[in-house]
Design a binder for these strands. Structure first.
Lengths: 228, 228
DNA sequence: CGTGGGCTTGAGCAGTGTCAACTTGAGTGG
DNA sequence: CCACTCAAGTTGACACTGCTCAAGCCCACG
């Protein structure tokens, strides 16, 4: 098996120094047409109606992935953290929009290039498959949350997922997204999110520090809540 | 590229005569350990906690794919129609249970066999990838439905999706699943589903015939409802 | 130090769940 | 072939969660 070009060698692993080689200036990557793209807050990587031309890989920052309805309602179907792929899938158009929540750095590659690499390297191909399967699993879980849990269970499940996903050892959790994103993710309103966080704090389940900080005082109780 | 064994040659296409070659008695398939499995009504293909040992392919019938919560609530994350794969994904355990709604016939293959075929044949591999991507797209749509639509919009969207998916030319639609399945799919109750169908019928949007038949009298209006 | 968006809190209400009774119709056995 | 049976579906009354609208607060900016 031939070795992967530096652009994609680190893909599927944690973000590491390998990926630093992939700046636009690096000649070994020029042939792959891969480049770095920086997004300011609220800037879109793509819209749900755009032709799906590129695969995006988050190097730093955070994206909200959302679908809109004609009446203005918005469903955030997922968040893309560093290391995550966005725009996998094999359809002519993206089915959701991707927007930066915090300033974000992306690695952007044309689909064709991506697919060629995947065709040549079964290991890479299977990493892609796993990434897609993992998106699907998370989305199944989200349907369960949104469809069957009440506001308390939803938020408990959300806090636990964010804690697991950001991989913090201690119980201090940073939620980089505003309350409105949490609401649109869970099918609630910002008011309900806020009220429920307050209730959790009163009961001693969590401690809220500032706008972004939450520490989980009683994860076991949250788990119980999340299970109904 | 070597030709595919009869067991999987028809996979990804419509169910056709090719697949008939794949009975347990056929020696050319014995080495693949693929076999036919028939499920009676309410019988499970697997449970959400089972080890994910096999890939299932629906030949005839209908499966509900669901996740359960400790409090007894159930979310149907999808339905598997003839031609659909179930149990793609690359994790140690299924993340949902699969149960027959009507008597169902499955083609069942060990994952290892499946993966070997996929590794040898990029065309097959890419079909799998597409099937997975298509599950993911449908699930994103479901999150939008469950999270952002009210009962009328939900049901309008559901009717249109079932119509598209069962591929009926005319507007007569057979819903093979009971109301309770529709409810648990959309995050509603059977009562709400029933009431909303009645409202649709009163307004002349649909016509209800028997327990399973619905004809769409005004698909355009349903589309408008689904968009909010 | 001032400003404004994001967050919190409150009061009232609408939509949907819950509980209960009744109706329908598919399947069974006489 | 018809009557019986019972699960599935429908309809109604009521309760309650979470949404809407509104006001005020606080923290991160300039």
């Amino acid at each position: 098996m031939k070795s992967l070009p530096p652009c994609v060698a680190g893909i599927g692993n944690d973000v590491g120094p390998t990926t630093a080689a992939c700046s636009g200036e690096n000649p070994s990557c020029a042939g792959l047409h891969c480049h770095v793209r920086k997004l300011a807050r609220h800037q879109h990587a793509f819209l749900q109606t755009d032709r799906q031309t590129h695969i995006h890989w988050v190097k730093a920052g955070l994206l909200r992935l959302y679908k809109g309805l004609a009446n203005g309602r918005r469903q955030i179907v997922g968040f893309a953290f560093p290391g995550d792929f966005v725009g996998l899938g094999s359809e002519p158009r993206y089915r959701f929009s991707a927007q930066a929540i915090t300033p974000t750095e992306l690695r952007v590659m044309p689909r064709a290039v991506f697919e060629n690499v995947a065709a040549d390297d079964p290991r890479f191909s299977s990493k892609l498959y796993e990434a897609l399967a993992s998106d699907l699993r998370r989305t199944y879980d989200l349907v369960l949350t949104v469809g069957q849990r009440d506001s308390e269970s939803s938020l408990a499940a959300f806090l636990l997922e964010m804690h697991a996903r950001t991989g913090t050892r201690n119980s201090i959790l940073v939620l980089p997204m505003p309350r409105s994103d949490i609401a649109d993710h869970l099918g609630l309103t910002t008011e309900t999110v806020s009220r429920t966080f307050s209730k959790f704090a009163q009961r001693g389940l969590i401690h809220i520090s500032g706008r972004r900080g939450i520490s989980l005082k009683n994860p076991a109780a949250l788990e119980r809540l999340a299970e109904g």
